[in-house]
Amino acid sequence: MKRAMRLLARLYPSSWRKRYGSEFDALLEDSKPSAHDALDIFCGALKMQMTTWGSGRVTLASTLAGILVAVAVALFLALPAHYLSQAVLIVSPADESVPADESARRLVDRIEQNLYGRDYLASVIHEHNLYWRERLRMPLDDVVENTRRDISLVPVPSPGNRNAFTVVVQFDYPDPRVAQRVNEELTSRFIEGGLNSQLTSNWTFRVSVAPSLPLRPVTPNRARLMALCLLAGLFAGLTLAIVLRSRRTVSVG
């Protein structure tokens, strides 16, 4: 950490380093190293740099920041939004006195096989005209594999009943209405698969939350993307300006 603090101290303007560098280094030798002090030195160096800047370097830093913000806006517009529709099912044993851990696991495995089957997913893809762009350039089996990645089944034990469990059925798609419709299909299939299974005579299925119509995309997080690009732009602009200044100072010296 002490070494990092000494390196950060080199970010100060060379004129400032010439006047205060030696005593500042002595202070760093006396101080206990900490992340807080390292950040304090970094901020101090940036402030000192900015007070000594001419309009040329301010323009350069602003331009770089602007370019990165523009890239963020372009990504913002180009990246497809993804919407996640969710449904919650409660699966409980008909006879709660019978321990059913093992049979619950087998039940979920069986339903998953049913839900992730290649022929079934191919029929869902055709019925809802999913991934039409991808279907133009990749084989159907690859599109089915993509669909499997966009489905998730998350079993969670139900509090208060060690045999019952909750299953969250999720489907992720760029169109919120299609995400909801497909999730309705998947949820029905989940229940049908469960009811048709030979294992399920002891189980009841209840839809606790119907497949949702997602109002906001889960990805990309546009606010975060913009903030990251802005910070990256500022950092890149400042760093470049400092490096250019150091090189100019060396060449003049």
Binding site: M5, E23, F24, A26, L27, L28, D30, S31, H36, D37, L39, D40, I41, F42, C43, G44, A45, K47
Partner: peptide, 21 residues
């Protein structure tokens, strides 16, 4: 000197100034 100021300020004001500040 700098380090003595940091310690003195922390004692009388309860504020620890970082080296950059």
């Amino acid at each position: 000197h700098g380090y003595a100021m940091m310690e003195d300020i922390e004692r009388f004001a309860g504020v620890r100034l970082g080296p950059g500040t």
